[in-house]
Design a protein around this nucleic acid. Structure first.
Lengths: 341, 341
DNA sequence: CTGTTAGCGCATTCAA
DNA sequence: TTGAATGCGCTAACAG
């Protein structure tokens, strides 16, 4: 039953010519006669011949495959980034192997090994929130396989990376709220384990400073990103004697949970309590009372840029050029969404 | 600069033994002397020897790779499905190559070829909305590479598929609305080109019939899924002399656009005009006035089940078992979300 | 213009 | 217990 895939050998035998002639004919090598070439192509077509890339990979030591490791595909941010990666890969005749770490460092390690076994030409990584070092990427680097980190970039030197700076937008968010008259601005941040750069908080603090507002530490609380965690964080803020009139949340998911919780408490969003967030997910634009603003982090572009950088590094490697560590920083943008105080 | 990777050949030469001995030693073959085995393993360790999987894939004619082709990753439905696929692949020691057709049949074709070039052991496909036949999958099927279609399943015989039946839920949606007192129920469907089974419409029609309501064709309109397309569809419905009091939309994205448009027209959602939709996207649960209900289609499960079926087919193929065409049908569920008339 | 052949790294069969 | 030889499919150097 199992029909064997046709090979150039089979084509050669059927046509009573040599395999190299077939190979050259299929590659439009100039030294092959038109007649022969046509014959070969015709038969190849008929047999549905498809070159066996595993043989070619094996010979060429190149797979035209890149690996992509990221926390998960459920978050729109990562699926948009993946979309950008795949589009760039397609353009460049590469294809992407997908792996989700689910924020487990063990699974991340296993995936790195798997990618290596599959001999990917390069790797794109957005690290799990539990990843604090890059030891498990060392074996790739040893074999000279380029690795580009994106978005969730580990805070270590000598890596290639693409990320979106949130610092300026974070300060801008403070300016924006203060112009609206807010003086008590809360901030719900992520868990401490997240080992990436904390530009949101830095922007928050410097934004306050710039506007000559004294920072009150009780206005900064943490959520583990679960609905319950966010509710607890909100409870902390709402229990303050001197409540905030505006809240900045780590991302739109946190904002959604927080706003839903606040609605239950009969507070009017963007009236009693204003919200500003990060991610600018398309969905927020469909809310009746969306956050006042959200910081766009361009996930699709981040993915696309990271992929481009990776392909550049792969090319450079082939031509034995040197490649200093490259760090692409995009700028986020504060996008006004809702209306209100 | 490029460090050449060590091979068993190199180990053999250094130890003055044969490559087969090295190979066997590394695989703990019982016939190898302990002394030799230890020597080999020690040297392999020192040289950071890693077996070249591309050579093994090549030889074994198996890549432990599956292909996934779907319209895009921007839709949460497909990213959730991909998440399910990747999780099952990881469990089974497989890894997934991703490709987005962007609803272009040409890109879909190219991706099929690419997947075949990469010698995937099997393929999962959710077809583009412009795909009306499965000719471009024939070459895979011919060579006995299993293909499982999921969600967007072509309406042709003799294929493996996993999908979620919407028929019963669609009727249930009608029952649900009629119980609420609605008699004029509109339906916004997709473009005609979508060549998949139209269970939504069938359920709609039979639901009406069952409730002894005469079908009014002017209540069924089409959208191309763009915001403008949906607005036009809404205009058609709202221009009717005898307006609908409830509307069923093809999916939540259409519902979101429709509801936003309706709000602009100062109509009260779920009061002046009720909505029921498909997909049950998490986002709808955060809306202040969500659709009354949405049909859950279990994208993660669909992906996982499709992957499971594919692995089963791959196994069967290896053991030369027969495999009749298998069609897994999940049942959708009408999930009540909002309150209102 | 076309054929012959070596070799990529590995597992494996046959010999010894 | 070990070695020699083979072949997987393809490309490319070399030979005619």
């Amino acid at each position: 039953m199992e029909k064997k895939l046709p090979t150039i050998k089979e084509i050669a035998q059927r046509l009573n010519i040599s395999v190299s002639t077939v190979s050259r004919a299929l590659h439009d090598h100039p030294s092959i006669g038109l007649r022969t070439k046509m014959q070969v192509k015709k038969l190849a077509e008929e047999l549905h011949y498809v070159p066996n890339q595993t043989a070619i990979f094996f010979k060429q030591r190149k797979t035209y495959t890149i690996g992509v490791i990221l926390p998960n595909l459920r978050e729109e941010f990562f699926s948009l980034a993946t979309s950008g990666i795949e589009d760039k890969a397609f353009e460049n005749n590469y294809i992407a192997l997908m792996g989700q770490s689910h924020d487990s460092i063990d699974r991340e390690k296993t995936l790195v090994e798997t990618m290596q076994k599959h001999r990917v030409d390069g790797l794109l990584v957005s690290i799990s929130k539990n990843t604090s070092n890059v030891d498990h990427f060392q074996s790739l680097l040893q074999f000279n396989i380029p690795v580009v980190f994106f978005d969730r970039v580990p805070d270590v030197p000598n890596i290639h990376s693409v990320w979106c700076s949130l610092y300026h937008s974070s300060m801008e968010a403070i300016d924006f709220l203060i112009k609206k008259g807010h003086k008590r601005i809360g901030y719900i941040q992520g868990p401490d384990t997240l080992s990436i750069k904390n530009e949101r908080l830095q922007g928050y603090l410097n934004g306050l400073k710039k506007n000559k507002i004294v920072h009150d530490p009780s206005l900064v609380v943490s959520s583990d990103f679960s609905a319950e965690g966010t509710q607890k964080a909100m409870d902390q803020l709402l229990a303050l004697k001197n409540k905030p009139t505006a809240i900045i949340t780590f991302n739109d998911y946190v904002a959604l949970d927080a706003m839903q919780y606040v609605r239950k408490k009969k507070l009017k969003i963007n009236k009693d309590l204003a919200f500003v967030s990060y991610a600018n997910l398309p969905i927020t634009h469909y809310l009746e009372t969306p956050p006042l603003a959200s910081v766009e982090q361009f996930p699709y572009d981040q993915g696309a840029r990271a992929a481009e950088l990776l392909f550049k590094l792969i090319d450079q490697k082939e031509s034995s050029e040197s490649h200093p560590f490259e760090n692409v920083v995009l700028n986020s943008e504060l996008v006004i969404i809702g209306q209100g105080k």
